[in-house]
Design a protein around this nucleic acid. Structure first.
Lengths: 225, 225
DNA sequence: TGTTTATATGACTACCTGGTCACATGATAA
DNA sequence: TTATCATGTGACCAGGTAGTCATATAAACA
């Protein structure tokens, strides 16, 4: 995860009272989440906030800077919720427990910040997003950076199959987790798991089934040599 | 998969020569693939085609109808490439071979029709797409309809673990396949598998590793009871 | 030939966008 | 009080959009 700031609001913005700043930040997230980057309308935002268009440009340089600022808040939120691997996470025999912990953090994140999650989905698949590759890999690399070393350690200790390369392990966990969370967040993507209702208990049960299946495989009794 | 047509072009369009019709269809796919639905510009399309704006509206009712028409062509293409389960596909001990066949069909589809695949990705994640839920579930349900019965049969015969429900089996295969194909199609989504180069041979090798891992699990030697 | 019917055209409308700028407001300092 | 400076304002601009419609063209038919 690169430390550099993506975008800095003007001093004027930082001088605002926290209340007003948060009101503006929230309105911006909501708009970008609902409409994506390109279609998001700053006219809309200022209208809903009851401030003048010019004010927004006293706070930020342009639309791109606004988007990057909002996206950076998303990555900060994710990092603060998932954190770095703890000492317990690093014990190789805790590997699947750690997977479960991070996965659950994802569920909680969506419950707490649905708009920010939607913002991320939009960034993932919309074209012409400013510095798109950079901001997406900030999030995607996070997964590899987090799970990669843990998986490598677990594999060395025999907790993971030696014939599956670490990148494939991370890929599969990430793919299952991502798709699961997308289904959880957006009902019509639901694939028959019926997570739509956003019933946290049911979601966790589904998650556990999937993690077990990742660990033990889908195949029948006999293992290949 | 519902049979109803999503959108019908006007008679005028159907009266065109095949050459002109295809030229127009291709230009439309390219535009929607590159820009998504909302930002796609019909002005752009007619300019690049060298026809008049009015002509487009002689062929279709409006932008929505145009998009739905193009998307329907995508679903038709997918269906024609994957087809229905063959007799061989239905043999329970051929389950993983069938997974491999469909997965490979996905790779070939992306190689042959990259714009159509991009169109699908846009539809997946853009907001305010006409009849979005309907058209997405048309594609997603396809996976369940195709693999569901095969998985159920394989599970009954002991080819799949009895403690993993069929929807979970389909979910995991679909999630891995989808994410793999997304990485294959779009380099910056690559998660360390290095499929970016679109090297078909390497892609198939990666696919095989993932399928094996789906089948046998990521966990170490010992199985849970 | 003249007449009807189908298709092609592009100027036009109403509306939206991001961004600008001359000016208004209010607070602080001299 | 007056002067200075940060902040707030909204009319305005250039440029884009989807969609319309009167008119031109061409083809088919009488």
């Amino acid at each position: 995860m690169i430390k550099n700031e993506l975008s800095k609001p003007k001093q004027t913005f930082r001088n605002l009272t926290e209340e007003k700043r948060l009101r503006i930040e929230n309105a911006l997230v909501e708009e970008f989440a609902r409409e994506g980057y390109r279609r998001a309308s700053l006219n809309n935002v200022v209208k809903s906030l009851g401030i003048a268009k010019g004010s927004l440009y006293q706070y930020f340089d342009n639309k791109e800077a606004i988007f990057l600022f909002v996206f950076e808040r998303f990555t900060r939120l994710v990092k603060s919720m998932v954190g770095k691997p703890s000492a317990a996470d690093c014990r190789p025999d805790n590997f699947w427990r750690t997977v479960r912990r991070v996965w659950k953090a994802g569920i909680i994140f969506i419950d707490n910040y649905p708009a920010y999650y939607q913002l991320y989905l939009n960034a993932l698949f919309e074209q012409d997003i400013p510095r798109r590759e950079e901001i997406i890999s900030r999030v995607r690399l996070f997964s590899m950076e987090f799970f990669g070393p843990l998986a490598a350690a677990a594999r060395k200790r025999g907790g993971l199959r030696p014939d599956v390369p670490v990148p494939v392990v991370v890929f599969m966990i990430d793919a299952a987790m991502d798709r699961f969370l997308q289904s959880y967040a957006r009902s019509y993507l639901d694939d028959g798991l019926e997570l739509a209702a956003a019933d946290r208990a049911r979601a966790e049960a589904g998650m556990d089934t999937i993690i077990e299946a990742l660990k033990n495989g889908l195949g029948g009794g006999q293992r290949s040599p």
